[in-house]
Design a protein around this nucleic acid. Sequence first.
DNA 1: CGCTGAAACGGACTGTAGTCCGTATCTTGT
DNA 2: ACAAGATACGGACTACAGTCCGTTTCAGCG
Lengths: 201, 201
Amino acid sequence: MLARLGEGGLPARADASRNRELLLCTARRLLDEVGPQGLSMDALAEAAGLGKGTVFRRFGSRAGLFAALLDEHEREFQGACLAGPPPLGPGADPVERLVAFGHERLRFTARLAGLLREARARATASGAPGDFSRLHLRVLLQAAGVGGDGEVLAFQLHAALEAPLRHHLEGDGPDGSPGAPPLDRLAAGWGDLVHRIADHR
Amino acid sequence: MLARLGEGGLPARADASRNRELLLCTARRLLDEVGPQGLSMDALAEAAGLGKGTVFRRFGSRAGLFAALLDEHEREFQGACLAGPPPLGPGADPVERLVAFGHERLRFTARLAGLLREARARATASGAPGDFSRLHLRVLLQAAGVGGDGEVLAFQLHAALEAPLRHHLEGDGPDGSPGAPPLDRLAAGWGDLVHRIADHR
DNA sequence: CGCTGAAACGGACTGTAGTCCGTATCTTGT
DNA sequence: ACAAGATACGGACTACAGTCCGTTTCAGCG
C-alpha cells in the first residue's frame, strides 16, 4: 500500500500515519465492547494513549472517524460490483445486475447500519459515500436500455435502497417503533421495482 | 382549539401550555435571525425568559422542538391531500393524484429542509412524520390498481421523495457539494417513475 | 379562603464534540 | 550531523444537549 497522502497531497509524516492506524485499530476494538453509539472521542483518545486533538486532527470529526472505519467495507463492495463474479460483477444481463446490486446493497446497509448511522454527517474529504452507488445504478440503467432522465432515476432508486437504513437511524429508541419491512420483502420489492421500470415501454 | 393534553392524557396546566406557546413564538422569531442551525436551546430559554429545564420539559429534546414547529405545516399538507382540491385531494384519477402528491411533497421538503434537518432524530411522541406519506402512497397505489407488495413499494417511493432532503442534510458544507438534481427534474422524474410503475402489466 | 398534592419551574451539573495554541517531533537540505 | 521550517501533538477550553432535584406555582376541595 502506498503511503497515505496528507492534506496538501504531500506524503503524510510517519508519526501521523502510524497514529492513524493505531486509532483505527483501537476504535475497532472499542466498538466490539461498547458499540458505535457508546464510542466517544475522549475515550478513544485515552484508550489509544493519545491526545484528543490528535484524534480530531486525523479524522476531522466523529463522523469522519466512522467514515474512515467504513472505508474498507465500501472499497470491498465497489470491487465486487466492478470486478467481482456475476451477477453482481460484469458479465450478466444488466437487469439481473441491477437486481443483484440492490440485494447486495440492502445487505450492506443492514450489516453496517451501526457505523453508517454515526457517519452520516459530512465527512472529511470529497466523494460522499453513495456517489458510487448512484453512478453504478446510472450505468446499469443505461445498459438495460431504460430511457428517461437516468440521473434522476438513479437518484431515486438509490434512495429506495437507503430507505431502510434511514428508518433504523431515526426510529430506534427502546420503544417498539414501527420498523422498516424485513430484508427479504425489501429485496423482493426491489426486484419487482427494477423489472417494472426496465420492462416499461 | 381544545386544551392541549399533558403527558398522561390530562389537560395541561395553564402555565405549561402558555409557556409552550411562548417558546414556539420565540423560537420562530429567533429562527428568522439565526436560522435553524444557529438556534440553541440555551438561547431559546433565555430569549423566552424561562429556565432551560422548562424548554426540555415541554419538548423533550431539540428534535422535539423542531417537530413541534413543523407540526402545523405537516397538518396543512395532510389536509390538502385528504380534503383539498384535486388533483392533490380526492376526485382525480389515482395516478394523477400520485403524481401531484410527489410534486407537492418535493416542494414541501425543499421549503422546510432547514427545520426537517433539525427534527430528524426521534421525536417526543408517536407517529413519526412520514407515516402519513407512506400510508397515503399505499392507498393511492392500490386505487391505481398497482399489484405487488404495496407496503414495500410505498416505502421505496417515499424514500425517493425524501432523497433530496437527505442529500441536503448530509452534504451541505461551505464547499461546493455535488447537490441533488434541481426540483423540476426531480418532479419530472417522479411523474415518469409513477407512470412506469402504474402502466406495468 | 387556605390546604394539599401534583405538576411545573429554574438553573447548576454532567458528558461530549470540536477548537486553539504553545510545545515537541519529524523531514529535508546543506 | 545539524539547522530550519513545517507538521503533528497534547490537553485545557468552549459551547451545547440533556439531566436532576430542590423550590415554586397551580388547581381542586373542604
